[in-house]
Design a protein around this nucleic acid. Structure first.
Lengths: 138, 138
DNA sequence: TTATATCCGGTACCCAGGTACAGGCTTAAG
DNA sequence: CTTAAGCCTGTACCTGGGTACCGGATATAA
């Protein structure tokens, strides 16, 4: 009787669109759930948490493919250095991104402080197009 | 004789595709340049720098629309608090993003340290699904 | 002058990540 | 039992940010 949520319930609780559930299923992020006799999906309740994990990872710049990989690298036990390695790689990536953000934040803060009037041809001698050198291509 | 670059030159120097120049023109990021008698675009040399600004801004998470706005908010003088305001807004956004990154970095570092074996159901008591609470929806 | 490299505009396509719609079946409440 | 709400599959479409291809015109060097 209890446990088992329908698509609509899962979607609402996780704050995603119903279609998105099916999309994630196709993409391999959500396992195919059991079905009711009539063919309706019945999700285990922790699906909501899983979706939150997915969304969190996504907000942090992982693509859906990466999320999928991470999840199932995690699921097939035997820790393996696999997950460890991926995670380490991601940390490096994050560090790079943070460095970029720090740089741009500084640049933007300068723009504010100096009361710059333009990003491209600011007239205040002190901030010669601060954007130019930021976060250059890898 | 001198000054005035052709699409190919600009593209190469700025490290972008030739098509991208035309695309940016359509999007209003690049002004329509002068043309040769035969109709070929002739760009002022600082276009290369402008493209670098655009690319930098983009890497930092501004959409092309935002970049376009920022650029022409900047171009029409009378500094106005307009640019200042937008920039301040972006700083706030960046702070949020950095906080997220810091959080996830910490979470990932824990995963590594604790030798977690899964992101969703790690067996090591100390790291109960660290991802879950990170960077929640605004 | 003629070959070769570029450029032109227009249109079509690509990828990621969803979202919408149509037409039909299922489920839960009354 | 009826009926509305919800779900099903399949397919089409959307946004953002480009990229590719076409047939034809231009530019430049030998």
């Amino acid at each position: 009787m209890n446990s088992g949520l329908r698509t609509g319930e899962v979607a609402e609780r996780a704050g995603v669109n119903v279609q998105t559930l099916r999309y994630y299923e196709r993409r391999g992020l959500l396992a195919e759930p059991d079905r009711s006799l009539g063919g309706h999906r019945i999700y285990p309740p922790d699906t909501v948490a899983l979706l939150q994990v997915i969304k969190a990872a996504q907000r942090l710049g992982f693509t859906l493919d990466e999320v999928a990989e991470l999840l199932d690298a995690g699921r097939r036990r035997h820790p393996g250095p696999d997950l460890q390695q991926r995670v380490a790689g991601k940390i490096t990536e994050i560090d790079r991104r943070m460095a970029d953000l720090v740089a741009v934040r500084a640049a933007l803060a300068e723009v504010v402080e100096a009361r710059c009037d333009s990003l491209t041809e600011c007239t205040c001698a002190e901030c010669p197009v601060p954007f130019l050198t930021i976060g250059r291509p890898e």
